[in-house]
């Protein structure tokens, strides 16, 4: 039996990017929510992501690394076409990453400055990622219409990250801050609903390939399960927030898992829209694939190492289970 290596690597890369979006998504979301909280709450919020953000960001390096390793021909095209948003994202991630460290060591107005840079970096990175996604879906078409479409996608991505961040805070905090996080979750949900609706309407308009794939009758019926699942998860979180507000006993991790479910569905839909293209309408994964010899060696390495990565990641989340406190270093 021969393995279809490009397909395996497309799945691996998709998994890494999905892991990145969910994991860094919640900490970027927490970063964007920072100005909405009081100073003491901000310390708790940052503490809740402290042990994780570094490893979360590593999934981006893995995703981009797999693009580079497995689809080198596409890597150059994609990153060249997305040059400016990539730079903006990188500067955002840099500011966010160092602000995290600097704000803990600073006092007075320095601390305030780093708080704002933390927020700005998180927002810039999220916005840039949304612009990249919007431009990627349409195969890097340029023009005002396409740019507006990318902006809408960017808004949706920011809203999605806020939802992840807010539900993360419901899970990891308590008291007044958790109450605020419930309110933020509702805002996030509304924002996501608007974003998903606009993107779902806009994508078939912006891309003929996507339209053909989704609105084809026999296939359309099972495909409609995806938006239905997404709507169900949305309603579930909305109801959970209502019960939380009433003070009913609800597992504190459930809204976050609902948000992850929405992402999973959206991501599946996106993967279906794109496959088998790695550069929309221009280059398939087979055309872009690296030489089988180098794919094999990476695959063997990945299969050996990935279980360890998953193992110690679980260990880390187990060590830092429970509610966060402001005293991170204690």
């Amino acid at each position: 039996m021969t393995l279809d290596l490009p397909v395996i690597f497309a799945i691996l890369m998709g998994t890494a990017i999905f892991a990145y979006v969910v994991l860094d998504g919640y900490d970027l979301g927490v970063g964007m929510l920072l100005p909405a909280a009081e100073s003491r709450e901000q310390d708790v919020m940052v503490s809740s992501i402290g042990p994780f953000w570094d490893a979360n960001e590593t999934w981006l390096v893995l995703g981009i690394g797999l693009l580079l390793v497995a689809f080198p021909a596409a890597h150059g095209i994609v990153l060249t076409a997305l040059y400016l948003p990539v730079v903006a994202m990188l500067i955002g991630l840099m500011l966010r990453g160092v602000a995290f460290e600097f704000r803990m060591k600073a006092e007075g107005w320095h601390r305030e400055l780093w708080n704002w840079l933390f927020w700005f970096g998180s927002f810039l990175a999220s916005l840039a990622q949304g612009l990249m996604l919007g431009s990627y879906i349409t195969g890097f078409e340029s023009g005002v219409g396409y740019f507006l479409f990318a902006l809408v996608v960017a808004g949706g991505v920011c809203g999605g990250y806020v939802l992840l961040g807010a539900t993360w805070l419901i899970w990891r905090t308590e008291g007044a801050l958790q109450k605020k996080a419930i309110g933020w979750t509702r805002w996030g949900l509304l924002w996501v609903a608007l974003g998903v609706a606009l993107v779902s309407l806009g994508t078939p308009l912006a891309s003929e390939t996507v339209r053909a794939k989704w609105f084809d009758l026999p296939r359309m019926l099972p495909l409609m399960l995806l938006p239905l699942a997404s709507a169900a998860a949305w309603l579930w979180i909305w109801r959970l927030t209502r019960r939380l507000r009433k003070g009913e006993a609800v597992p504190d991790w459930s809204p976050f898992s609902g948000a992850v479910a929405i992402y999973l569905v959206a991501f599946t839909g996106l993967a279906y829209s794109l496959f088998p293209f790695v550069v929309m309408d221009r280059m398939t994964i087979w055309e872009a694939a690296a030489h089988p010899s180098s794919l094999k060696v990476v695959l063997i390495g990945a299969l050996i190492v990935l279980p360890f990565i998953v193992g110690y990641t679980i260990y880390s989340y187990w060590v830092f289970r429970g509610k966060a406190s402001a005293k991170l270093y204690e």
Partner: peptide, 9 residues
């Protein structure tokens, strides 16, 4: 890329 990619990965 077939050399550099795996080493970076």
């Amino acid at each position: 890329g077939n050399i550099a990619g795996p080493l970076l990965a």
